[in-house]
């Protein structure tokens, strides 16, 4: 690693974090589909095979149940696997190993087992991948007791959360947004760990609190800028960790603004946005000046055509509209 790192992309920061983690700890091993020789579909695993050899970096057959299960078994017997599930949509293929095995083993052992497992996977629509390669299942996965779910939106957060995930004794689902891989940002060369469970305030404001994770942070920041021109000062909070979510950071902002808008690319029904709104309503009801609102895609699968996908996805102008309604409420 050079001391100075020019602003890397999220893919590059994740790649650098993998190199550091593997160099620092021999029990870290990495595998997945098209992971080793090909460097990963999004380039995150470039150079790992060459640097650490085929015993620690390898390709698997297209057998998600077997290799995710193998990662779970390896994590409870001394290794620290970082396993790649190419798209979170594929969780459907190996759901038992996630829902029943990874999520429950620590509880069922009364905490005696440790599971330093990281399941890296992708999420997010916007690239025409269609209904089975574009979902954002962070809310679904976070609803399962026993799983930690993170969804970083910057290179520093991606690298830092990956480090914390590998060091965690709990299984972590690490969700990378496909549309953010090329997103750049400043990082320290040492790629310092980012604590799990801590939100980051991307922009401070006094009138309205906007919570947005993963790629929705970009739309939220753009909307906040427009709102600023309209005289509305928005706070934008990236939870970074979906579960355990950082209630305190969101709560202090809502107590100040009295207005909450949650933007999420996940489920319209029973999703992360609903959870945040319910949590805040429960905690700071008396501080609310208006009923909190959410903005999610409609309750349908992700459509394929460019126009349809664009309409489906919440955008900055949608956020401005809903935020304006909330201000007038």
């Amino acid at each position: 690693m050079p001391n100075h790192m020019p602003e890397p992309t999220i893919a590059e920061a994740l790649n650098a974090a993998h190199h550091q983690l593997m160099a620092d700890d021999e029990s870290v091993i990495c595998f997945g589909e098209d992971f080793a020789q090909n460097g990963g579909v999004f380039g995150v695993s470039n150079g790992l095979l060459e640097a650490f050899g085929p015993a620690r970096v390898f390709d698997t057959p297209i057998s998600e149940t077997a290799f995710i299960g193998m990662a779970v078994g390896a994590a409870i017997t001394g290794l620290k696997p970082i396993v790649e599930l190419m798209f979170c949509d594929f969780a459907g293929v190996c759901f038992d190993q996630i829902l029943n095995q990874a999520a429950k083993a620590r509880f069922l052992s009364n905490g005696n087992l440790k599971m330093p497992l990281v399941i890296r996977t992708t999420m997010g629509a916007g690239d025409g991948s269609g209904a089975m390669h574009s979902q954002s299942l962070h809310g679904l996965l976070a609803s399962i007791p026993g799983l930690v779910v993170v969804a970083p939106s910057s290179p520093a957060d991606a690298a830092g959360l990956l480090k914390s995930a590998v060091m965690s004794d709990d299984p972590v689902i690490f969700m990378e947004n496909k549309t953010l891989y090329g997103h750049t940002g400043p990082v320290e060369a040492s790629l310092p760990p980012v604590p799990i469970g801590e939100a980051r305030t991307l922009k401070s404001g006094n009138d309205i609190t906007i919570v947005a994770a993963s790629a929705m942070t970009q739309a939220a920041l753009a909307a906040a800028e427009t709102l600023e021109h309209k005289g509305v000062s928005a706070s934008v909070i990236d939870p970074r960790t979906i579960k355990p979510v950082d209630w305190n950071t969101i709560q202090s902002s809502v107590q100040q603004t009295g207005r909450l808008l949650v933007i999420d690319e996940g489920a319209a029904f029973g999703g992360f946005a609903d959870t945040v709104i319910a949590g805040m309503t429960d905690r700071v009801f008396s501080a609310l000046k208006a009923a909190p609102k959410k903005l999610t895609p409609p309750d349908t699968p992700v459509p394929y055509a460019v126009g349809a996908e664009g309409t489906w996805m919440p955008g900055a102008s949608d956020i401005v509209n809903v935020a304006t309604q909330l201000m007038e409420a």
């Binding site: 299960g69 017997t77 069922l108």
Partner: peptide, 25 residues
């Protein structure tokens, strides 16, 4: 003995993980 399982067949990939750990060590 490591663990038993409530899901029929789910223990099999887990043993592959134990094998991978043994091999790595």
């Amino acid at each position: 003995f490591l663990m038993s399982n409530g899901i029929v067949g789910a223990q099999v990939p887990l043993a592959a993980g134990a094998a991978l750990s043994a091999k790595s060590r």
